[in-house]
Design a protein around this nucleic acid. Structure first.
Lengths: 201, 201, 201, 201
DNA sequence: CATGAATGAGCCTTCATTCAT
DNA sequence: TATGAATGAAGGCTCATTCAT
């Protein structure tokens, strides 16, 4: 029984810790998305409902917290986009699904991650380069497949994929969604219509 | 004679002042473009070759310096784009010219200004909203004209204009140019091809 | 049986507690000696193999832990030196024994305590002043005895004792031992020779 | 005249800056001596009568301020001791002069620098190692000279010099001076008497 | 009683802004 | 008027201490 009690205690503690870290990541994600990387650590702590020390226990610096947030969001994004691509068979349909996935995430308040290469290239950002490469490759393959089967007009698939990526950047998603009265599906439809018109052969 | 000397001094001073301000704006524009709005005022001063005090004499705060840089660049951009629109008669040609103008500016090392609305809306940015509105209106009118004459496919002209604007953002311009081996004309051609395909009816 | 069990448990617990405290004192002593008073409580806890909470249960503050370490080491040092003084009859021999005792402690990795008065006087250090006074008195008496019997040259016994103490400070012991290739007996011999030459009448 | 005025202005400014830095070094020296390296930068600034920013303008970190203080004091100390050694011809007299110099500095409130090797060896301390080596060499030579001419007893000159250095450490100087009712000359005399008795052949 | 996660005051450092020269 | 030294508020981070488990 003593053993059981101890185990339960240990398990409970660990669950709390786990939940605190999730709260921190969530708060950081929201604030970074809302106000950029210049948010104060204290603000992150406040929104997470913890003390600053708690953040620093797991993330030794602001930079690393930012990187962690980025990594988490990246994995999520990659997963969503790959999933969307898998769920459709026609290349144009795949593209449409990918775009809708990204636009709908903003409606779900899920953090959007910037999928574009960073021209300044300053922060290594852990997984970001890998993410960019994999997403870019994913899109380029889908487009190339469409070109081979004739449903997408010819042209540099790399460049066309890059253009798609630009139209999936967080700010673009937000701007276009806002212009469509926050009806992300409408915004996505416009973009999809535009893209497919622009890509179709 | 005393008067003459003073006059000469005053005139020279005025010319120096003028030149100093131009240097400051130039330096600020470059640094803001290179490293974002977090550059230090001292760095701006150093690159401009003046003391910090000199900057503060004309621009009472960093925010206002930033706004001034923005305003200058905006005016330039608006001028270029309006010019490009005037020089062509067919709506699609106008669009093509506008896009080329923006892409070529980055090749000329001229600072690109972000023409998109800022979703965070944080900085008042003096002239920016006006610029955005006028550019957006310009594009929407060109597109609407194309729709009326049948050369551009139907759809929400506001939204289509917004999509165009997203593809003219500094980072997009840089990313796509880089992907085309810094051949901005090639990048612009791809985008133009894409846009016209996407817009054409 | 319940009683027996509880008793056994209590006894075992008490033994554990005892051992934990010894470990904590040992770890603190080592770390204070190695890295000065700026060691982190967490490092002490880690080396002791306990949680920080365990330290705070017995020592309500870092200062008190430091004082406790000091007190323990002091008692040990005082014991060693008094012992050394008792084991010899000739005053000069007593001194020699005292010095050797202090130098050999450093070779045994035993923590050396600073026997000198602290000019800044900052930390109350519980027992330290008492220790200093008693050691100083001990040395002064040994020297005065030597002076009375003529084996030590005349002079202010207080001051001569103070000089001896300076040559017994931890850092001096370490520096001189190191210079003698870590041969503490050789270092002690040099100091003893020096001291006895300087003290002898 | 304009030129003159400007020059005067420039010179005056530079003099102020110079004086500020001297104040900072002075304040830092005093506080480091009084309370060790854990003083707050703000306290240094307050005692120097400047803002913290002013300190950071010249000394990019606390560590570097500390190093600068150390370096200044070192040069002064080395100068004093070398001077003292030059002013006497008999080796024993040289030693006496060196010791008096160090003891009298503490009376003059001049910062004493620790001339001994640091067993922990942690801080690089800019010039300190060089200082230690040069002082140690100086003392060893003086002692060796005394040994050659017979006025100092034989023994390891390196070790004897090290013992002298220990008796010249700031804390020793302060402790012994205090014990002699702050009569540093008396304290120095005792140490000199002790040393020469211990060194004389 | 032991644990170690959480806390937050406090320190070092930066940088926008002011002001004496 | 131009200069750049001085200022000090603010933010990142540490670590002694507390407390829920």
């Amino acid at each position: 029984m003593a053993v059981d009690t101890e185990d339960a205690g240990a398990r409970r503690t660990r669950r709390d810790v786990q939940r605190n870290m999730e709260r921190v990541l969530q708060a950081a994600q929201e604030l970074f998305a809302e106000r950029g990387p210049d948010v104060k650590m204290e603000d992150v702590a406040r929104r997470a409902g913890v003390g600053i020390g708690t953040i620093y226990r797991r993330f030794p610096s602001k930079e690393q917290l930012f990187a962690a947030v980025s990594a988490v969001a990246c994995q999520h994004t990659r997963h969503c986009l790959a999933q969307a691509a898998d769920d459709a068979h026609d290349p144009l349909e795949k593209l449409r699904a990918i775009i809708l996935a990204q636009y709908r995430q903003s409606a779900r308040q899920a953090a959007l991650i910037d999928l574009r290469p960073d021209p300044s290239g300053v922060p290594p950002d852990l997984d970001r380069p890998g993410l960019y490469a994999s997403i870019h490759t994913l899109l380029a393959r889908v487009i190339a497949a469409g070109q081979r089967q004739g449903s997408i007009r010819s042209g540099d698939a790399q460049m066309l994929a890059a253009i798609c990526l630009e139209l999936l950047s967080p700010r673009t998603v937000q701007n276009l969604s806002r212009l469509a009265d926050d009806d992300v599906d409408a915004a996505a439809d416009q973009v999809v219509g535009f893209l497919t018109a622009g890509l179709r052969s």
